[in-house]
Simulated assay, not measured.
Amino acid sequence: MLAGGPALSIYFDLLYFKQLFLNPLYHLLTLPIGLFLAMLAFRAAAAGGKELARRGRQKRSTPRLETDSLVTTGIYSHMRHPMLFGLALLPLALACILGSPTFILVVAPLETLFVIVMVLTFEERECRKKFGAAYDDYARRVPAVCFKRECLMKLFSKKV
């Protein structure tokens, strides 16, 4: 996805959007937007990752990147998949950094949809398998993602 999407998009850009794609002013507009989106994506990943690192490993025997307890504090008290925001923003951020109209309008939305479906399908299944009824109760109380201003401010804030 990281190489194929941009390559295919640039190919179509040079065929159908050549004037726009080769316009430096267009890139001066899309580049800062892409960098901003990338910054938000990494902040979301940091917020979710740090909370998991603080609260998700109670036993010393648990491998470094895994959890042994259900985390429902911090950003996880607002949404079940905060890092999904970061993953979902990355294709659009890359598309804007490259300044590819095809990537921005077609490929990035498809990649974002793919990421969302994969995370919600496989991660939800794993969490239910690992934490059972506790996760089911948590899932009833807390949405998978939250678009409320307070949630997004907490997710994207510099303090994590």
Rank of each mutant, 00 (worst) to 15 (best):
A139H: 12
T67S: 15
K50P: 07
I104H: 01
A7Q: 14
L120F: 12
F21D: 00
L29K: 02
C146N: 15
D137Q: 15
L70F: 11
L40P: 02
L25E: 04
P32M: 00
K50Y: 12
I75G: 00
T62K: 10
R54G: 06
T72K: 14
S69G: 10
R54M: 11
M39E: 11
R128W: 05
L152K: 02
E66Y: 14
A93Y: 04
L98N: 00
A108L: 13
L87Y: 11
P6L: 08
L152S: 05
F122T: 09
G34N: 00
T67F: 13
A53W: 13
V160K: 06
H27C: 01
A44D: 04
F156W: 15
L29S: 00
L105P: 07
G56N: 08
A134G: 05
K148N: 12
A38R: 02
I116E: 10
V107M: 13
F131E: 05
A47K: 14
Y135R: 05
L65S: 15
K154C: 08
E126R: 15
R140P: 05
L52V: 13
F21E: 02
K148M: 03
D13H: 02
L25N: 11
A95M: 07
A44Y: 04
P101W: 02
F21M: 01
A38F: 12
D137M: 11
F85L: 04
L155D: 00
G5V: 09
I104R: 01
D13Y: 02
L110S: 09
I97N: 11
M83T: 12
T72W: 08
L52C: 10
A7G: 11
L25M: 07
L105M: 11
L52K: 10
L152D: 01
L110F: 15
K130L: 07
L105R: 09
C151T: 15
R43W: 09
K158Y: 08
L29C: 06
E124L: 01
L98R: 03
L89H: 05
L8A: 12
V142A: 01
A45L: 09
A45M: 14
L37M: 06
E150W: 08
K130P: 05
A139Y: 05
